[in-house]
Design a binder for these strands. Sequence first.
DNA 1: TCAATAAGTTCAATGGATAAACAAAAGATC
DNA 2: GATCTTTTGTTTATCCATTGAACTTATTGA
Lengths: 393, 393
Amino acid sequence: MDGPVRQRSLWQHNLALVLRHVATSAPVSRAEVAAATGLTRATVSSLVEDLLRADLVAEVEPAPRAGAGRPATGLVLSAGGPAGLGLEINVDYLAAAVVDLTGAVRHHVVHRVDQRDRQPSAVLADVARLAAETVGGVDLTVAAARLAVPGLVDGDGLVRVAPNLGWRDVDVAGPLAAAEHWPGLPVSVDNEANLGALGELAAAPSASFLYISGEVGVGAGLVLDGTLFRGAHGWSGEIGHVTVTPDGPVCRCGARGCLERYAGQEAIMRAAGLDGGREPVALGRLVDLAEAGDPTVRDALRAAGTALGIAAAGVVNLLDVDAVVLGGTFAALAGWLHSDVERELRSRVLTARWSPVEVRACALGPAATVIGAAGAVVRDIRTAPAAWAGAVH
Amino acid sequence: MDGPVRQRSLWQHNLALVLRHVATSAPVSRAEVAAATGLTRATVSSLVEDLLRADLVAEVEPAPRAGAGRPATGLVLSAGGPAGLGLEINVDYLAAAVVDLTGAVRHHVVHRVDQRDRQPSAVLADVARLAAETVGGVDLTVAAARLAVPGLVDGDGLVRVAPNLGWRDVDVAGPLAAAEHWPGLPVSVDNEANLGALGELAAAPSASFLYISGEVGVGAGLVLDGTLFRGAHGWSGEIGHVTVTPDGPVCRCGARGCLERYAGQEAIMRAAGLDGGREPVALGRLVDLAEAGDPTVRDALRAAGTALGIAAAGVVNLLDVDAVVLGGTFAALAGWLHSDVERELRSRVLTARWSPVEVRACALGPAATVIGAAGAVVRDIRTAPAAWAGAVH
DNA sequence: TCAATAAGTTCAATGGATAAACAAAAGATC
DNA sequence: GATCTTTTGTTTATCCATTGAACTTATTGA
């Protein structure tokens, strides 16, 4: 937004404008793009030529159309264009995904290995190997990688704290790029909930929503005015430590009555009378028991849903977002959480009468984070195609 | 952000860039602006010429400078350029202010009249008369007016609810522009806390903060990444109905334990053992008693400060803002609220250890809202000078 | 008095957009 | 089936804000 604007920026902006239009209403003709964007057909033609050369869009057979006139050549996002690699480190698994320019998931693997007692360097070596395998196993040009971590991440790939991994001030981007198997891609690192929110934004576009991600802790990603909001230092989204009951039980963070004490995985498990064992097992049991109608489990989920609703209502009152999306493990539990969250929103949100807040489970399910990470790379290319197309211009 | 970019937009953007630079580091020379922005001296000269012609900037005597070379002509924002008219309707007063392009307050009046039992049309007629007097009494070209209202405001000047005025779905912009005395300016309407936040942003620039405005209710304005955040429907900032205690006392809004029940004017007064009479009187007494060390009053303020801190901590956890600003009547009470707000933030904000959150009273004091409203008009001209300079180009 | 230095202006060139004319490929009409 | 109509996409001359380099202006310092 800052800095001077030269002719070049003009081209960059309009290139992105045309690409955005192709993405949202493919297949479209050059003439339709021109009419919709307000550019002339001549300009669109010239921009499309650049996009074709960079393999960002492709031409398809003209769709048969009624009426007279020369048939239009359809333009679509190129499925063979630059793709994004998503990587995820979580407490009990590593995952990788590749998303192509059209947003299609072209690859997705999950390695279930508990990372809790491992050194960061060992984990990162595994991630590098996984990345290499994934990039090698897919027939696409991968433009960049994005890594999701369950913790607070600084701008330059430094993980300040990842409580559930036991990490503290760990440089992630550096060692990864220097790792033996690393496929030589630019990497950036981001918070798990932020990338989940970006995944949701790509899968079910909506201008503003609160994405609440249940993992061992509770995190949030905020999409405001169609863009992910990161906060002054990149540490936004710590909804897990929003106060639900000021004099409630003491939390790991030192405060009292945090959301995590009601809707964190440990809290739900304990309330449900389940041991705090390996999560995937325990989560499966929780779902089974809830489905069977176990009253203790139902009560535990009701308490969690109510706490989530109270915290979410505060957010909606303050930020006037359209929807609350349940992600991570909450996606699997959405069926039981939904009504309690909705009830609290209805009663606590001042504007709920005019415009009710939508509560929904995340569209991509539990894989939202990795897919979102891969999609974020693609998103960057799509919003700033000039950086990619510049070389061939 | 949308739409095509033509050569003209390029000029618009760079015009704003130059003006911004003149505003932030006045007095500056054309050459300094060129060096700082990255534009060439030739371009800057041409843009400055346009700005001079539109009376947005003015030339001043060259500042004596050491060393050889032709002396620079200083550029400053023109104090005689377009100014903004701010208007405020509040429960117990009407106010008006004029701010010139440099941000200086050139006029400021407050009419203390209780508006609670009056018809909107009568109030608006008074506002129109006040506007006419103000514009007539000041020797400046007023570009536009902005009206602050304590309630939820829709995009086109429709007040959805102003609970403490007793207004509901009142069109404000229309009747005002059609009023007998109205000085024929474009008007826009906004929420009181939003405009207070803009006033704070102009007076003490900082990238992101939460502005909490205490009036009869409690509202908030959010500045994120240097711009006011309005929410999906323009209804952001309802911090007064954020839950502080889920099972606390029932609030006017139907929910339980809202912040307003602890930090709203009525709640504080009742807790302090004061009757809920005319506010200015009661507020003055509250301050007097607090200064005298009255224990009941001190306890009431402590409870309010704690509740404010709890609500603010949730916001900071979620949005990672740098500062919490106490505005409206909270500005006058800041001395007593400060330590309680800060304590709750320190204990409840996850990242408080790395980067403590600043708590401060609003820089403009209780007049922040009207001045902010007037300043918002000027701000719009400064960020989009092309609209103003376009005519003379 | 004159070189050195810096500020600001002038002017041809540049790069991207526009507008209007043109070519291409279909349906519509007789 | 020949011609008209309609729409797509390209070509070409023109426009316009920025650039870069040369130039003018105003001051310091030798």
